[in-house]
Design a protein around this nucleic acid. Structure first.
Length: 421
RNA sequence: GGAGAGGUACCGAAGUGGUCAUAACGGAGCCGCCUCGAAAGCGGUUAGUCCCCUUAAGGGACACGUGGGUUCGAAUCCCACCCUCUCCGCCA
């Protein structure tokens, strides 16, 4: 959510931000509702002030005076009912419009219409080439019985997978390695709930329009399954006030993530690249507003360090305004090299959501002088484990058909390569 | 799932229709006084959001878990929901 005061003051900036993000919202209509709403607030408050004054008098008035005042107040009530009703309508309209407005992109975010206009910031590592016929991850995974999507389809349907044998063990190794790495950097390890109350899901800004279709909803309990642990970590401090000296507060969370992939029919239908359920390690920061740009770079540097530790070639994308999504003010993606596709595929994403989520969730901080302000929230993928395993299998396949385990992970596994069924 | 108790400030807690929310009382934190220093004691302080006005100052509304209702008036009475705790049942 944006600050209405900011919208009043800089309507043109907000309109520009919306159009850069390819979001259509009628800002003039919002400002009109805002004007009418404030007028009504004034009228309602005047009336309440009158009633409060009369109430005070009633307590000290004599019997005759009291009766007269009560009659007057009864009459006033018929008017106030009408006002209350239009107040409620205006509030609803106002909130509706406010929730539609996306976060403003930061000034240095490149302007573009869609993901086709994202720019490559840098590349790391040499794109893996083999002097033997390379296989794709699914062929190798099935050969060694690491991945089983056929039986998953029987049991749960398409877009599910079993991770088996060394595949399952590899997941544990990645989790342990990543937690060791990030806890040493000061991140607080956490395993969050994977279900959210509706109000919390809304607070994270993922329930508006098409985003809503992406989440699994449990009607019996009015709850949502999380699409990423970001949603359960960001909401953790809702309604709370940090001391500025305690910021930044950084978490590393592990959770299963659930996505309906409603708009992705026909896309990546094979294998486990795009599935309804996967495990992910996620970083999340709460920081002061002045530090969020720096914090964003820090999260990106953590992502890159992790990829370099695994020695998987990657590129960093600077996401353009049209591809940011609603809550983000700036975003970087990392794509890992997949030899079988001869291209990079997304494995990481880190967003600076500035105060957009903090406003909705009422997460503030108190500075040295006692002044309150909204914190900035940021998130970044440490590893989406399924896709990381895909990248490892493909980039680490050997001429003899085996898969080497990346050096940094060997400490966390009892095997150095995967060669036997 | 059944039965009960409860949610008030940083924490504990009183208040059970109006003079009790700038919220009694107790504790904790911070600042100051006292002291060579500390403890004790004393004094101060620890919330906000919105609207009007805006240079400042000021005025008003709301805030007793959340949302409704009853009433001239609700922390207090009624309804729904959320959360916490205790006991029983079930359970990894």
């Amino acid at each position: 959510m944006l600050d209405i005061k900011f919208i009043r003051q800089y309507p043109d900036k907000v309109k520009e931000g919306c159009s850069k993000k390819m979001v259509i919202v009628d800002i003039d209509q919002l400002l009109d509702v805002d004007r009418r709403r404030r007028g009504t607030i004034q009228a309602v408050e005047d009336m309440k002030a009158k009633k409060n004054e009369a109430s005070k008098q009633i307590t000290v008035a004599d019997e005759k005076e009291k009766k007269k005042l009560i009659m007057e107040m009864r009459e006033l009530d018929t008017n106030s009912d009408r006002l209350d009703k239009s107040m409620k309508e205006l509030d609803e309209e106002f909130n509706d419009l406010m929730l539609q407005i996306p976060n403003m992109p930061l000034d240095d975010v490149p302007v573009g219409r869609s993901d086709k206009e994202n720019s490559v910031l840098r590349k790391w590592g040499n794109e893996t080439k083999f002097n033997f016929p390379a296989k794709d991850y699914l062929a190798i995974g099935e050969e060694f019985d690491l991945i089983d999507v056929k039986r998953a389809a029987k049991v749960a349907g398409t877009r599910f997978g079993y991770l088996k044998r060394e595949g399952a063990l590899l997941e544990m190794a990645i989790v342990n390695f990543t937690f060791d790495f990030l806890v040493k950097k000061g991140f607080i390890p956490i395993i969050p709930p994977v279900m959210l109350k509706t109000e919390m899901a809304r607070g994270m800004g993922y329930l508006e329009q098409s985003d809503k279709e992406e989440a699994y909803y449990l009607p019996q309990d009015d709850m949502y399954l999380i699409g990423t642990s970001e949603q359960a970590i960001g909401t953790m401090h809702s309604g709370e006030i940090f001391s500025e000296k305690d910021l930044p507060v950084r978490y590393v969370g592990f959770s299963t993530c659930f996505r309906r992939e409603a708009g992705a029919y026909g896309k990546d239908t094979k294998g486990i690249l795009r599935v309804h359920q996967f495990d992910k390690i996620e970083m999340f920061s709460f920081c002061s507003p002045e530090k969020s740009k720096e914090e964003h770079k820090f999260l990106l540097s953590m992502e890159e360090s992790l990829m370099r530790a695994l020695k998987i070639p990657y590129q960093v994308l600077n996401i353009c305004t049209g591809d940011l999504g609603r809550p983000a003010a700036a975003k970087f993606d990392i794509e890992a090299w997949l030899p079988s596709e001869n291209r990079y595929r997304e494995t990481h994403s880190t967003s600076n959501c500035t105060d957009f989520q903090a406003r909705r969730l009422d997460i503030r901080y108190k500075d040295k002088t006692g002044k309150l302000g909204f914190v900035h929230t940021l998130n970044g993928t440490a590893f989406a484990i399924g896709r990381t395993i895909i990248a490892i299998i493909e980039n680490y396949q050997q001429k003899d058909g085996s898969i080497k385990v990346p050096n940094v992970l060997q400490k966390y596994t009892s095997f150095k390569k995967i060669a036997m069924k």
